[in-house]
Simulated scan of single mutants.
Amino acid sequence: MTTQRRLNTICGAGTALTMLFSLAAVAQAPQQGSVEGMILGRDGATMYVRTSDSPRQIVVLSDGTKATEKGGFLGWSHKDLGVAALVPGLHVKIDGSYDGDHQLVARKVEFSRTSMTTARQIDAGLTPVNEKMAKQQDQLMTDRRDIEATQQDIADAKTKIDTNTQAIASTQQDLGQTNGRIGALDQYDTKDTLTVSFRNGSSVVKKEDKDKLEDFVKQAANTPGAMIEVQGYASKVGNASLNQKLSSERADNVLTIIQQSGAVPMTRILAPAAMGVTEQVADNHSRSGQAQNRRVVVTIVVNKGITGAGQQASMTPDQQSQQIATTPQQ
């Protein structure tokens, strides 16, 4: 009887230890997670996503993260594009596991072809508004110098300042309406650009341009927080669908050279954009003008949150005028 009791006690203790080890193993296992929402912005390998549960979910990317575009009939077509395709404004579904800081380490990111098209259209629409606002701010600075140089015209100059301030406020309102469609997307400052030219009907990068491109990418690698943007164009001559295809192939070939250089990781390269015959920079009635339009523009951009430029963009017109008034003139 005593021996039987001891055996029961030992068995009970063994069962308890087994349950304890099982609970510990479950507690140590990574917590799997899946979120769905819109990309607010990218900062290298860190991506910010707005979901129904969180206004700013941090997602960690890596070169091993799969980014897949779904399209075709019933979304059965899949195309692996890489993390460079993850741009602000894109609606995504992310699968992964949470780390100790509750950051979702992405294993797989999926999005639709329609969502990618919309995100690129939104990004293209922001650029003209930003340029218009910059021109208005430059005009305000010019008017302020006129006041200091000509005292007898100070009353007229103040009227000009008030007019330009109202114009800036109107431009900021337009920008706010545009941003309202997609939320507070990250903005970027342009640090430098390189234009790669192409022969007529060709998407092959010339040897001299390849060398310039590799040197340019090294410059981006040495710029803190820099991202690389690639946009392909075609001249407005010939078949429209062929021109669209050429602009896409040119952008892809330049992106391939950037990737093969190994100077910057994939997480710092934005998705290549095929701009077709938009934004013609020269008259297509001459051969030289057509040559200027057959191009790929490679741009080094830095998040304004890193450079501090975002603080100026968020100021009211009155605050901007006050800052200009207290800034020493050169």
Score class of each variant (00 low, 15 high):
R199M: 06
T2W: 07
K66E: 15
S115W: 03
V35K: 07
Q259W: 04
E214S: 09
A282M: 05
S52C: 02
V297W: 13
G180C: 15
Q330E: 01
Q31K: 04
Q139A: 09
A221G: 11
S314C: 10
T18R: 12
V105D: 08
E214R: 01
V204G: 10
A45W: 02
L90C: 05
V35G: 00
M19Q: 07
K304P: 04
S52T: 04
S52D: 12
P265V: 00
G89H: 01
V92S: 12
M275N: 12
T165I: 09
G305V: 05
A309T: 11
T267G: 07
D63F: 01
A234W: 09
N284S: 13
T2Q: 03
Q260T: 02
D283S: 01
C11V: 13
K206A: 10
A155R: 05
L23I: 10
G89V: 08
V298Q: 07
S54C: 15
S197K: 15
K132H: 08
A85R: 06
Q260Y: 13
Q28E: 09
R144W: 04
I258V: 12
K191I: 06
R50N: 10
R6C: 13
D138A: 07
N293G: 02
L74A: 08
G262C: 02
I300D: 06
L104C: 07
M116K: 14
K236I: 08
Q136D: 12
Q320I: 15
A273T: 11
R56K: 03
V26W: 05
